Amino acid sequence: MTGNSATSTATYIEETTDQEGAGFAQTYLTPGAGVLYALLNTVLSATASQFMSLGSQAGIPGLQLMFLTKFGETLAVLLFLPFFRPKLTTENGRQTLLMVLSTITENLGAIFQYMSFVFVVPGIAFGIIKGSMPLASACLSFLFLEETVGVVDCFGIVLNVAGVVVVAYGLITENTSSTQRLTASILLPLAATFGRAPSLVIARSLIGVQKVSVLTVLFYANLPGAVVLLGLTYLFETPIWAMSAQTVGYVIGLCLCVCGSHFATKLSLKTEKAGITATIKTFTIPLTVLLDYVVLSELPSPLKSGGVVLIMFGTGVVTVYTWWRHRKETLHKNFMQSLDFDK
């Protein structure tokens, strides 16, 4: 009798612990899944930018590095396809058009983004790209998906825009390079924004609204991109395939970080609006500036640091508010379910 009682008590404690663990995950982690994926993207993107710079300093051409990342992503997607078996065909002409546009904008944005690292340190490049992305993404998302952002989110986006203006102004006033190089260092990141922002909105439409598989979107974006970049590499550059062990390490790190960051972004778009995801991703900027100092010994000026602070504050406001809003919705849903109106 005593043994049965002990067994029942142990079983009760185990079930209670499991329920509490599930309740914690459902209350605190599940509402912030999209936020967590977006934050994971920032860490991986910031790290990828450093591997890109180190690979470039090691003598590997920029287009070749981008080809290797696209090739690595394609291999990763092909590896996952047999396990998840997503639908690789589109359902209608509109979805086909969106998939084609997603492929074009994704690859153009990637080319402009990583080429900008050739002209400016990654922290400043990301300052312009990531800082201008939220406003562009929110506007495009409103126009094409009718997704709106609240007052608090707008406040965070305004702070991000202010931060990127400060960073760009610091770049202009402190840069002593030629006018041509300075112009390229500003125009290339802005061109990346006008490629990345539409790509983000289109991916949100495909993945978040039409429920197309993340693997499907990445498959069609990476396979043509790898082929085109390989051709561009041989057309405009002299690729280097004999690399030192250290350079191979840079390339592998770059491929892993870029692949992971793209997966994280697409998973975030399953639940979060394009403008919100873009805003949270601006946290890449302070992380990259920090890594610029640690890896490349590039110390930001006070003006650029002020811009980074504005960006961090704006990103923090949107991140915390988004998580709180989703948690509130989850608690309300759980409360309504606890009332059990169906019985």
Rank of each mutant, 00 (worst) to 15 (best):
P239K: 02
L159A: 05
L54F: 04
A76C: 12
P61K: 15
N175D: 15
V248Y: 14
V320H: 07
L171Q: 15
Y293T: 14
T173N: 15
T90K: 10
T89P: 00
K270D: 03
P86S: 06
E147K: 04
F71N: 09
G314P: 04
V251G: 01
I172K: 14
L44Y: 00
A274M: 03
N92A: 06
I129F: 00
D292S: 01
L97Q: 08
R327H: 03
P239M: 02
M312Y: 13
V201S: 08
I172W: 15
A278K: 00
V35G: 07
V209L: 10
I207H: 12
L36A: 14
L78P: 04
S5H: 13
V212R: 11
V43I: 07
V309A: 14
F112C: 11
K266Q: 13
R204S: 04
W241D: 14
T42D: 00
E298C: 08
N160I: 13
T193S: 04
L291F: 11
L187D: 10
I129M: 08
S8Q: 13
P122M: 03
F335P: 00
W323E: 12
K328R: 01
F263T: 03
I276T: 07
P61Y: 11
G275L: 02
G3F: 11
M133G: 00
P189L: 13
W323S: 13
T27S: 02
V214E: 07
L39P: 00
N222R: 05
D342W: 10
G59Y: 05
N107G: 12
L331H: 03
L296N: 06
K70G: 02
L182T: 15
T265N: 02
C257V: 07
N92G: 12
M336R: 15
L331M: 08
G109F: 09
L254K: 01
V217I: 10
T216D: 09
F236D: 12
L215Q: 01
L229P: 06
V120Q: 08
A48T: 04
G93R: 13
G123I: 02
L29G: 11
T265A: 01
L187R: 11
V209S: 06
L190W: 10
I285C: 03
V164A: 12
K273M: 02
V217F: 07
L143K: 00
D153W: 00
L79M: 15
V209P: 07
V308M: 15
S53V: 06
P286N: 06
F142T: 04
D342F: 12
G59N: 06
V227D: 05
L101Y: 12
T103H: 07
T105G: 05
I172R: 13
Y234S: 09
L65Q: 13
T179R: 15
M115L: 15
I129R: 01
T27H: 02
L269R: 10
V251Q: 11
V151C: 09
V318D: 09
D18R: 14
T7F: 01
S141N: 01
F80C: 14
N175L: 08
V212Q: 08
Q95V: 13
Q26R: 02
F144G: 09
T176Q: 14
F119E: 14
L81S: 07
Y28D: 06
D340A: 12
L36S: 14
T7Y: 04
Q113E: 04
G32T: 10
A38Y: 10
Q26P: 03
A25W: 02
V77D: 12
F341G: 03
P86T: 10
